[in-house]
């Protein structure tokens, strides 16, 4: 029996790679129907008791407001991902540096960012980052809350992208380095022209996966009263009289919203992953 027997590819199952093997659009569609049905049922129940507009009608009234909040979730997720990608690649390159003084601290930072709960990182950034910083020319750069929260979300993702890069570079066979060296490439030239281009394909599915995870974490911004989807939904319920009948439809709607956005990404990532798995 081969030595590979009795083992699983661990990464395939961690929460950090949450797309399971059978992402399938039909399941997604079925779930949406179920969501919609339970939403309708819940609001029908509420409607029987009250004279005020039915929960579903209330939801429709507040929907644009919630969607506006959701747009902010998306903006935060795009920006945070962009920051995380740039900084994460930098940190990842530092991690594979040959200089110990560069490598060791970057490993430590990566480890710290990956292993702290997101909420704790959020608190640190939100409470300890100043409201503005003064630049030398007496100019002030403001940090509104939503910028701060974007930075906070970027940090854990940055740590993980750094780790993806390190893993991808390590997964390139040493023969590639050696043959580049044999062709008189310097280390950085080999990295730039030989190694990194081969890493990109491997790194794209986990990168998308982290984008999805990041998006799923953005509701945490509501803790800091940032007007994203969850806080707007809560504000809407409050304004509509805080009736208990509203709770299920509103929260189900939020779940649906994220599901509709994330699920296609999951399907797409899975597809790419399969394609690349066949390719290698």
């Amino acid at each position: 029996m081969t030595k590979r027997a009795f083992r699983l590819e661990t990464e395939q199952f961690s929460q950090e790679r949450f797309f399971c093997r059978f992402v399938d659009w039909r399941v997604g569609a079925g779930l949406l129907v179920a969501f919609a049905l339970s939403m309708a049922m819940a609001s029908a129940q509420g409607a029987a008791q009250q004279a005020a507009p039915s929960p579903l009608a209330t939801l429709v009234i507040w929907m644009p407001f919630i969607l506006k909040g959701f747009a902010l979730n998306l903006v935060i997720s795009f920006l945070a991902m962009a920051i995380a990608t740039v900084l994460g690649i930098g940190l990842g390159l530092m991690q594979i540096s040959l200089i110990w003084l560069v490598r060791a601290p970057s490993r430590f930072v990566t480890h710290l960012l990956r292993n702290s709960p997101w909420l704790v990182i959020l608190f640190v950034i939100m409470l300890l980052l100043p409201v503005d910083i003064r630049l030398p020319g007496n100019q002030r750069v403001m940090f509104p809350d939503w910028i701060k929260v974007t930075i906070a979300f970027a940090l854990p993702v940055m740590g993980n992208i750094s780790e993806i890069l390190r893993g991808a570079v390590n997964s390139i066979p040493t023969g590639q380095w050696e043959s580049a060296e044999g062709l008189a490439f310097t280390r950085s030239q080999a990295l730039r022209w030989i190694i990194l281009p081969q890493c990109i394909r491997r790194a794209i599915p986990p990168w998308m996966n982290w984008y999805a995870l990041l998006t799923l974490s953005t509701p945490m911004a509501s803790i800091f009263s940032i007007h994203e989807a969850v806080s707007n939904a809560q504000a809407g319920m409050e304004a509509a009289g805080a009736r208990p009948g509203l709770l299920i439809p509103f929260y189900l709607f939020l779940l649906c919203l994220f599901f509709i956005y994330i699920y296609p990404i999951a399907v797409w990532t899975r597809k790419l992953e399969r394609k690349y798995a066949v390719g290698s």
Binding site: F18, F19, C20, F22, V23, V27, G28, G30, L31, A34, A212, L216, S217, T218, P219, M220, V230, P244, L247, I248, F250, Y251, L252, L254, L255, F258, F259, I262, Y263, A266
Partner: peptide, 25 residues
């Protein structure tokens, strides 16, 4: 299968709020 997909592809924080506020009510 549906359970797995539903809970993997939605934010855990909203799941928590849903359980506590929506079902808790």
């Amino acid at each position: 299968h549906a359970y797995i997909q539903a809970f993997r592809n939605t934010p855990p924080m909203i799941q928590l709020l849903f359980f506590y506020f929506a079902l808790g009510a």
